[in-house]
Design a protein around this nucleic acid. Structure first.
Lengths: 362, 362
DNA sequence: CTGTTAGCGCCTTCAC
DNA sequence: GTGAAGGCGCTAACAG
């Protein structure tokens, strides 16, 4: 932590002094002024670089960035907020307080925030609540949010989006439904699922069941469509009896599978709309003394850690959750700086073929 | 080095509010100066009243309070932080970026912050890094942290703790080792494990193996001690061959179990030092065509979500992770307010008996 | 493309 | 007991 040029030794408010090898050193905090001196530019130029503003040549930009890195400089958030007109604060809105999915998205957003020295806060919401629009408005106003990231299913509430527009608060959505796509990230889940179904058909399965996701989530729809499309592409007929309700929870997957196994002619493969339900399915199958994948193949969606940790390891679809959070954050930050900037980014999925799927029984 | 995120709602004073009509209405912000004018005193006197400082006569005090009330004045937190000596910001230091454990602790700390108008940021660290002390110092200085919460294994680095003391930065630890207990929360893990082992012995098991945790974590030591103590209490002999290395990961549990199963006389029960390793153990056992718990019982520690989602569901020890985060936060905030306050709080554990353990085979 | 000059709203020091 | 001046560290608005 040093700078070329004059060394300002200033008393810290708290007067922090540390001793080492008998010598007293003052650990001073680095200010924008120090970075400016180190990079041989004005404070304002440093500020511009920090805020990703235009009108800085590439050369000076890299020079400033180097100085920032070298000095480990971090802007003082209070000073920024006080001097500027922004709060440098965004929030992630969600309604499921503890899933791995959210954690990954959160880390991705944080990642995006880091480079621009933005802060993020978590805003748990109950999606069912009828006053959700008021809740969000209060949050936005009181916390002076510069923008928000929406996660499913909060992405698809028309009234909320409208209010956000009225408040002139930019928002980015993670996996919004088609009708609500403005700024955010999406994955072609339908295509992914279709591919998975075709893969199962290729293994000889002809009776492939589907456990649907929570009806309020757009993803449930896409995954169902992908299932139908996959069947069609594989030349299999769609059978109503093989499609059962679920709600993305382990328990619902367990129950749905029991229903499926009670059928006169049960399926030889099950595609659950997410990994948690697939785990529940595997449990239900095992409890009946059947074996996965010898008797029944099971696959899920999301590639959560559980997919690698259950027995047998789960065939599933990976979506790059953290990356998605990062992109949502980036696009949001763009839009905050410049209303009109930011857009929809599509990221790739990847089939993870593991041990829970295999050839259809003879 | 670290991504930072403020994860708490700050109540900023109300300012510009945009109307839906499209008309922008600016409600001018009340400043301390306005209050001073209204009460016919100086700004400083208002400040004194606001901060409950001495040297204000009762008369002026009530006069100022009246003005504050009348004008609905709310101090600007940014200005306050900028000018003052406290930042109202703490950080949670950790080195494992995505486990459920951390998420829970995080939520608990946030809970504690909420009530005291404190903010929290996340600071991922690489524990192996030799410059961890410098990294933390830079973080503390640059982010003006009022205090930090340490999570394992960062709780047990003597050099770091010493530097934190030198910097006069209070810290609270979650599950620190005995030698480093000053402020924080702990669980009697040793006792919990001993109880679990006695339970297994009660099911008829005599050859009970243990997969150790990561050597850098204090928890590994406690769990090993608990294992020994449990054996002793149950009247079983300790057998070196039944204790194998692990490092808290699924893969290490898998590998360790394969080693155990290759033994001339393999165990009939395995106590893994955490749930991830227990899941790996179950996988290894199943892959050999053996059954849990019929052939071998398995139990873990932590009660992560995976414990309820694998087949068979896992017997494990629950520690109240979120509550622990909350307490660590509370104790830290006490210490920030008053050096010398705050202490070690012990919280209870609970055995979760599920399907992965059963009677020893005949 | 880059720099200069004023504050942002509050707290601190040090006078009175 | 009270007050005046001077920052805290940064960005907005305007210069060049």
């Amino acid at each position: 932590m040093q700078r070329s040029g004059t060394l300002h030794v200033r008393a810290l408010p708290s007067g922090r002094i540390r001793r080492r090898t008998g010598r007293a050193e003052v650990s001073k905090r680095v200010r924008i002024e120090d970075v400016a001196a180190a990079a041989n530019v004005s404070m304002k130029t440093v500020s511009r670089v920090l805020n990703h503003e235009p009108n800085v040549s590439a050369a000076t930009r890299t020079r400033v960035e180097a100085a920032v890195e070298k000095l480990q400089y971090k802007p003082n958030p209070s000073a920024r907020v006080l001097a500027g007109r922004r709060s440098y604060l965004i929030a992630m809105l969600y309604d499921n307080p503890s899933s791995n999915y959210l954690m990954e998205v959160e880390l991705g957003i944080l990642d995006a925030c880091q480079s621009q020295h933005y802060n993020m806060m978590l805003a748990p919401l109950v999606y069912d609540a009828k006053d959700i629009v008021e809740k969000v408005e209060a949050l936005v106003v009181q916390s002076r949010l510069d923008g928000v990231v929406l996660t499913p299913p909060i992405t698809d509430d028309p009234a909320l989006l409208e209010r956000l527009d009225e408040l002139d608060v930019p928002f980015a959505s993670v996996s919004p439904m088609e009708a609500f796509r403005r700024i955010g990230v999406v994955v072609d889940e339908e295509k992914a699922v279709a591919e998975m179904i075709v893969h199962l058909a290729g293994l000889g399965h002809t009776r492939i069941a589907h456990i649907k996701g929570h009806p309020a989530h757009g993803a449930s729809g896409w995954r169902l469509s992908g299932y139908r499309e996959g069947l069609e592409r594989a030349g299999l007929v769609f059978d109503d009896a093989l499609v059962v309700d679920g709600e993305f929870s382990y328990d619902s997957g367990f129950a749905a599978t029991n229903a499926l196994l009670a059928l006169a002619s049960p399926p030889t493969a099950i595609f659950a709309a997410n990994d948690d339900m697939a785990a529940g399915a595997i449990c239900a199958i095992c409890e009946r003394g059947l074996s996965v994948p010898r008797d029944i193949s099971v696959c899920g969606f999301d590639d959560t850690p559980i997919a690698r940790h259950i027995y047998p390891t789960l065939t599933t679809v990976r979506q790059p959750t953290r990356e998605m959070g990062r992109i949502a954050g980036q696009e949001l930050l763009k839009a905050i700086r410049d209303r009109g900037a930011g857009g929809i980014v599509e990221v790739p999925y990847a089939l993870q073929l593991r041990r829970s799927t295999g050839p259809a029984p003879a």
